[in-house]
Amino acid sequence: RSLKHLCRLKIRKCMGRLHLRCPVFMSFLPLPNRLKAYVLY
């Protein structure tokens, strides 16, 4: 697996499933929209 994929998995694990599904939580993250979309992919 690529480093990019492993990073996405780690971020998702740290955030938890409930936060990933909450659009309000995701909108408050201080991340560029492209990065938010990548994490959610």
Rank of each mutant, 00 (worst) to 15 (best):
R1T: 04
R1M: 15
S2M: 15
L3N: 02
L3M: 07
K4R: 07
K4E: 02
K4C: 07
K4Y: 14
K4Q: 03
K4S: 07
H5M: 11
H5Q: 05
H5V: 00
L6K: 10
L6R: 13
L6H: 11
L6V: 06
C7S: 04
C7H: 01
R8P: 11
R8S: 07
L9P: 00
K10P: 04
K10G: 09
K10D: 04
I11Q: 00
I11W: 10
I11S: 01
R12S: 06
R12P: 06
R12T: 06
R12C: 05
K13P: 03
C14M: 14
M15T: 03
M15P: 01
M15Q: 02
M15A: 06
G16T: 12
G16R: 12
R17M: 11
R17N: 04
R17S: 13
L18M: 08
L18W: 09
H19V: 08
H19W: 09
H19N: 08
H19M: 06
R21Q: 01
R21M: 12
R21D: 07
R21P: 04
C22S: 05
C22Q: 02
P23Y: 14
P23N: 09
P23A: 14
F25I: 14
F25D: 13
F25E: 08
M26E: 13
M26C: 10
S27T: 05
S27L: 00
S27P: 03
F28M: 07
F28C: 06
L29A: 04
P30Y: 09
P30V: 10
P30I: 06
P30T: 14
P30E: 15
L31F: 04
L31T: 03
P32V: 14
P32H: 03
P32E: 00
P32W: 15
P32D: 00
N33P: 10
R34Y: 07
R34A: 05
L35I: 06
K36L: 05
A37L: 03
A37M: 06
Y38E: 02
Y38R: 03
Y38H: 02
Y38S: 03
Y38F: 03
Y38I: 05
V39Q: 00
V39K: 00
L40W: 09
